[in-house]
Structures are given as C-alpha cells and as structure tokens.
Design a protein around this nucleic acid. Sequence first.
DNA 1: CGCTCATTTCTAAGCGCTCGCTTATGATGC
DNA 2: GCATCATAAGCGAGCGCTTAGAAATGAGCG
Lengths: 194, 194
Amino acid sequence: MAATRTGESAAAERIRQAAIASFAEVGYGGTSTRQIAKRLNMSAAAMYPHYRSKEELLYAIALEGHRGVLAAMRAVDDADLPDSERLRVVVDEFARWQAEHHELAKVVQYELHGLTREHYRTITAIRRETTEVLAEIVRRGVASGEFTVGAADDAVLALSSLCVDVCRWFPSRTHRDPVVLGRAYGDLAVRMVR
Amino acid sequence: MAATRTGESAAAERIRQAAIASFAEVGYGGTSTRQIAKRLNMSAAAMYPHYRSKEELLYAIALEGHRGVLAAMRAVDDADLPDSERLRVVVDEFARWQAEHHELAKVVQYELHGLTREHYRTITAIRRETTEVLAEIVRRGVASGEFTVGAADDAVLALSSLCVDVCRWFPSRTHRDPVVLGRAYGDLAVRMVR
DNA sequence: CGCTCATTTCTAAGCGCTCGCTTATGATGC
DNA sequence: GCATCATAAGCGAGCGCTTAGAAATGAGCG
C-alpha cells in the first residue's frame, strides 16, 4: 500500500507524505512550504527539484489518492457475485480505504480547491469513475429486483457520502479498526438498498 | 433563517457572511482578512472593532452553525412519534439544513482546525449534543424492536455521515432542492435501521 | 575496484509580496 | 460632545519561489 511510484525518488515520496500530514491537519492554505520542509528536517528549497510548486505537490497527492481508491474498489468488484454481496464487498473496501488512508483521504476530499482549474478537471474525471462503480452495482440490483430502493441515484449519493465522510472523523474513541468499520458499513449499505 | 443575532450590529453580521463564503470556498487558512474585507468593499481594519481576530471570527461562525443545526433538529424531534417517523423527520431536517446552509455547514464541518484548543472544546461539546439527538432515537427504536439494525452505534455514525457529507457536494447537477433531498435522505435513513 | 565528470539534489540567502494586526486620525450619529 | 466605526498607513513576520554554489550521486572506463 502507498507503494513508491515507479520512476520517482524516495525524496519525492517523503515530501508527499509530509505534505499529506500537514494538508490534512491544517489545510492546503494553512500549510507553508517551510512547514512541510521542517517535518523532514530539510530546507524549503529542497522540494522544488521534485515538485515545481506547492500546487503541483497537491496535484500529485490528489492523483495518488483518487487513483488509489478507484483501483482498490475495482480490484474487489466482482460482477459475478449476487448484487447484495457485490455491493457489500465494494462498500466495505471503500470505507476501509478511507479509514486506512484517512489523512490522504482528507486531502483528496476537502482540499481540491487549491488546484488549478485544469488539474481540478482531471481529478473530477477520476471521481466520476469511482461513483460509477457504485452506480453500476445499484442499477443492476434495482433492475434485477434484489434492491427495492426507489431512487437509485439518491442511494448512490448516500452510499458515497457514507464512505467519504469516514475520513473526516476517523479514528475516533469508538472506532480505530478499519477492517471492523468496513464490515459494519458494508452491512449498513446493503440494508439501505435491499 | 440566519437571523441577525440579538445585540450585534448589522456590520458584524455582514462580516460573518463574507467570511463564511470565503472560508467555504478556499478554507480558513486560504482566506486573508483583506479578502473578507474586499467582499464588503471595506478596509481590512474595519472588522477589528467587531471581531478581535480572524480566529474569533471563525469561532463566532462555528458557534452560529453548531447552535443552528442543533436547534433545528430539536425543533422537529417529537418523542411521541413512532420511532421510524421520528427518525425520518429528524434526518430530513438534518440533511435539509446542511443543504440550505451548505456554505456555513462547510465551515462548521471542515474548518475547525483553525480554532484555539479552548474554542475547539466548546464547539465539540455542541457536536456531541447533536449526535445525541440521533443516538437517542436509534436506541429507542432498537429497544422497542421497531429497528432491527444490530450495531446501534455504527448506525448513528452512518446517519450522521449521511447528513454531514451533504455540505461537501451540495448543490450538484442532479440535486438543487434541499426539501427534496431531505425527504429522500429521511427515507434512506429509515431503510438503513428498520 | 578506484577515478573522473556530468548530473542531480541539497543549503543559505534573499526577492518581492502578502500576512494578521495595530496605530493615528477623521467621519458619523445618539 | 462623547462613543462608535470607519479609514489610510504601516509594523514585523512569514509567504511562495528563485538564485548561487556546495555536496552527493551514478555512469563509463582503466
């Protein structure tokens, strides 16, 4: 998980991790390049050979995060499963991912306002694919009659919200295990549509 | 709605509204006092007679928002209703509030990291009361047998997430009417626990 | 292996600008 | 005529980012 991306230096990876922690804690606008550097005991100028600007660093993080969650969901999505089981597995994975990567997820979900218009468009295209994974499952469940929920669109929206919001509060006093949380949310998701 | 608070000047109200819009758009850290002033065509110094610092402005907004949503939910909560109906009405109101006040809600949900430790504690105390409104309903529904959901705590968490997350995406291409959204989410909430 | 040399990545210094906030002072209204 | 609220001006600090040059790195070759 969060494996070093091919063709990038270890320093770039460390810079991204430090930026994720700071963006998640005090926001993109609340973080200075000097603060990120300080977490790594390096000078602020040292990150410029790796990322040409603070915005490009945010973009790299946003790409990493959005691709990560989409890949994770597609990896567990199995169209041969019964609709309910299929939904349970995917929501389980989605919620678990948000919990396991809650700092990265916070940046992914709440700090996109720092992106340029063009970068923002690239990112939202990936987001639509993520939603589409859920939408396809719900549509098929409704068509087959296994899901009885009326408004499929609203259900997809609600399922997304359920999972996305995890990164806002995780971990809490009562919930610190991403696996346990994933299972619970998978169950709740099925209850909501069946 | 968003009525002027008693004992405060109209200018203070206008400053708060401008700050809400900016905090929601680019975050607390991404907003400067000069930006807020510019929205009102006044000098940055003009807000200091009303709010002693940028943090105190955020705190005033956070208080307004948290008290608002708590009051709204308590106003519609009716313990005499059947458990399902009671939950539906409260979730309807919660989701609708997040949609109607989505800018204020964004600040309330995502920008609290800008608060001092002490102010943060005051705010989280109000948050707990809000969650408790939902928790009470779910607990009673489970106790009476009307709700069949197993883990009541997880359900409360999920219901909160459902509503809170509305402010992140509202309005969207498909959803621009808070009333319609509230009804849909009220139904989904009942499906989830019954 | 040891050596050279080009490339990459680091640091210290600092540029022009903006930050949150204060001060001194003029306008407004009970 | 006194308190309130606005302004312009500006303080010290920190901002994103660039530069100059030193140190580290890796490839090619004896």
